[in-house]
Design a protein around this nucleic acid. Sequence first.
DNA 1: GGTACGATAGGCT
DNA 2: GCCTATCGTACCG
Length: 260
Amino acid sequence: MSGQKRKLDSVSVEATTVKSSHAQDSPPAKTAALISRYFTGEEKSGPRLGEDFFNQPCISLAKAFLGKVLVRRLPDGTELRGRVVEVEAYLGGEDKASHSSGGKRTERNTAMFMKPGTIYVYQIYGIYLCMNISSQGEGAAVLLRSLEPLQSLEAMRELRSARRKENARPLKDKELCNGPSKLCQALDIQRGFDRRDLSSDHEVWLEQGPESPTPETMVSAPRIGINYAGEWVSKPLRFYIQGNSCVSVVDKAAERASST
DNA sequence: GGTACGATAGGCT
DNA sequence: GCCTATCGTACCG
């Protein structure tokens, strides 16, 4: 409440966008919508999205996330922005890949059962974090997998470098947020964000992006890293923006199938 | 450029 | 013992 400074001048607004990596052998047809470029000045993405946005079924919310802009405001006032380009839906009780599979409620996954828009942060493999947002439906949530960095890329690079070797090569722009735990590092999403509300929090929120992906540029593919989940392994519950270089895992077979 | 592999590490169950 | 990952390195084209 004290000292709500608006130090916009301290916010480094980089006009940089991620360089699109045109693969030499990529089909020309559907790779047109590659990378957004719209931070050309003072422009903002628009007002934050409220409760109504998050209050929709899980798959619907997952798809709606694509193209939206996640914003993180650091204590010093710096605002980090990234456009959501890859998500996964975890449907709740019936979904064997979900932490809430079988209706299981634990201390860890409590946020999955809270009101739509609640942030669920959990630790994976001992060292990494993943960020989800609860949706409509008991125990259902959307995992954020990749962002296209838009603003304050140098701050992201510093945050990401913290846990890497000192003499490691510098990260390319597109490597800053191209994975569920990488985006948590790049935006400094900590365990303390668990159970907070993305529709009202002062340090993290979601904004309308300038453009939503058309159905043609959205790919549905199986989710990553859930090979234990029986018949749920192959369900196409991962969604990403086709051709965007920040997507963590490209599924060529799924892209071929969806282009027909 | 891509892909594949082993090492990593801590909390949850 | 498993897990909604990542890193560095090796190797291939």
